[in-house]
């Protein structure tokens, strides 16, 4: 019975994370658009000051939140050490590309809008997978405590 409930919990958490990822994508499409041209148009209208006002809290607080989430990886032995390290580098790199690519877009370098789109999708999907995977490990710990 507990096994079944744990599976339901895992599915519930998975649904929650997917919902949050969909909301992030929805917000992006609603405010900015999905094509590179729409992204370029949106950021071309912004001032450097306006962008920095958004970038600063994002870089600081999402960076701290990522640290909190990723520190769990250091203590989970299921995944090989190299993979965990690589995974951390990938997530932070995607995060930086996602956040910082808006600066060259604002300056008129349109090619960065494609980088922004790819890094945004990559970051959202990778983070969602990480959350689901770590919650699964938490449930395995819970089952082991019986």
């Amino acid at each position: 019975m507990n096994q079944r409930l744990l599976t339901i919990l895992a599915l519930g958490f998975g649904a929650l994370v997917i919902l949050q990822t969909v909301l992030g994508g929805w917000l992006f499409i609603h405010n900015i658009g999905i094509s590179p041209h729409e992204i370029t148009t949106y950021y071309a209208d912004k001032s450097l000051h306006g962008l920095l006002e958004v970038l600063m809290p994002h870089i600081l607080f999402i960076g701290i939140a990522l640290m909190v989430v990723l520190h769990f990886l250091a203590f989970i032995e299921v995944m090989p050490q190299n993979t965990r390290t690589r995974f951390t580098h990938i997530l932070f790199t995607l995060y930086f590309f996602d956040q910082l690519s808006v600066l060259p877009i604002m300056m008129g370098v349109e090619i960065f809008s494609i980088l922004k789109l790819i890094s945004f999708i990559g970051f959202e999907v990778t983070l969602a997978w990480l959350w689901i995977w770590m919650f699964k490990i938490t449930l395995v710990t819970l089952r082991g405590g019986d």
């Binding site: 929650l16 994370v17 919902l19 949050q20 909301l23 992030g24 929805w26 917000l27 609603h30 405010n31 939140a65 909190v68 989430v69 769990f72 959350w131 770590m134 919650f135 938490t138 710990t141 819970l142 405590g145």
Partner: peptide, 28 residues
């Protein structure tokens, strides 16, 4: 406004999921 509602929910949910993960991993 729908955009304000979406932004508010997205920001709220991000913080609430992190809080949930922290508390759940301790409560276990």
């Amino acid at each position: 406004l729908f955009s304000d509602l979406l932004l508010g929910i997205h920001t709220d949910l991000f913080g609430l999921i992190i809080t949930f993960i922290l508390i759940a991993s301790l409560y276990v």
